[in-house]
Amino acid sequence: MDSQKLKSQILSILFVASKPVTIKELVGVLEVSEEELKQAVAELVSENQSSGIILLAHNNKLQLSSNPDHSSVVKKFLSLELREKLTDAALETLAIILYKQPISKAEIENIRGVNSQYTLRHLLIRGLIEKIQSPSDRRMQLYKTTLEFMQHLGIKDMKDLPDFEELTKSIELPGAAQNANGQ
């Protein structure tokens, strides 16, 4: 299919969909291959970066969203109140899920060294993370960040997020550079 037309059709479907649409659903409706669709999605994401409406793509889910660059005017228009700031515990947990997803509760608690039940529930209720069944063990649930997480923090493209190594390369424990690396 002509790629211009495909992109146009994707936008129309996403406009009428009120919830995130999966790549799989779109492949079924548009009768194209998954690679073709993903290519079109990638182009749409980059082409619309400065448009009023941007395309959010994450975890094989797609959703149209207002451009976070305009958040202040949109907020003014909607007369929204100030929202609640995320707590340090919530941010810490989000950071782990963001760079380790999909990740289990046990792994999160191992990194944080503290029970994270309450924080995870709080993040789930706020829609910033979601639970999925582990593909290897159906009894285990794994956590992922959502499209709403992108919307909440105004992330236009997951590629814009700094690389984990880049973000943490200068971090070391006092005087223990070799020590930690040696482990």
Binding site: I54, N67, S71, L147
Partner: peptide, 9 residues
């Protein structure tokens, strides 16, 4: 989070 660059669906 503090930048409040929220986007809406």
């Amino acid at each position: 989070d503090l930048k409040r660059r929220q986007s809406w669906a």
